[in-house]
Nucleic acid binder design. Structure first.
Length: 152
DNA sequence: GCCAACGTTGGC
DNA sequence: GCCAACGTTGGC
């Protein structure tokens, strides 16, 4: 079953253009247990991803990606020199996981929060809720399709 | 830069 | 187990 997700990233750190350049990448650095559980248990190859730019101008969905590999350990947690190092996570029993995603499409214009809020389907999305900090969020197929329509 | 909302830590 | 303090996220 194909599922649909929204992945947040600050474009100053990693943007949809960066993903387009590298083609595919491991989505590392997720350090929240709720998001980790979804990455580890629910995000599967073939799933579709809305790539969301947070802390950005403009803020919103900048494109789409595809999951190409399911959960495997986030090795950045093992590296003491890495920003995402976490001494609690060990190779024998990893705390944190990544999935691999491949660039699929960069929208010609970002689907902004205002545009999402103005759409009857997208208005209910988790990402629009005040204080919604979850960096991996489930979206419905209807929401995913509606965002693609808004991107046209 | 501000600050509200949230998650985590740690003293008790 | 409670909860205050703290750090982080993220919109504005």
């Amino acid at each position: 079953m194909t599922r649909y997700w929204l992945f947040k990233s600050e474009p100053s750190v990693f943007s949809i253009d960066d993903l387009a350049t590298v083609r595919s990448t491991s989505w590392d650095g997720v350090r929240n247990y709720q998001a980790r559980n979804m990455l580890r248990d629910d995000v599967k190859p073939g799933d579709r991803v809305l790539f969301y730019h947070s802390n950005a101008d403009p803020t919103g969905v900048a494109g789409v990606a595809r999951v190409v590999k399911g959960a495997h350990p986030d090795t950045t947690a093992f590296d003491p020199k890495h920003d995402h190092f976490d001494p609690k996570s060990r190779a024998s029993e990893p705390t944190w996981y990544v999935v691999d995603v491949r660039h699929e499409k960069t929208f010609s214009r970002v689907v902004t929060r205002d545009a999402l809020a103005a759409d009857p389907v997208c208005a209910k999305m988790m990402v629009l809720k005040k204080g919604s900090r979850l960096s991996i969020q489930p979206v419905t197929e209807a929401e995913y399709d509606a965002v693609l329509r808004l991107a046209k």
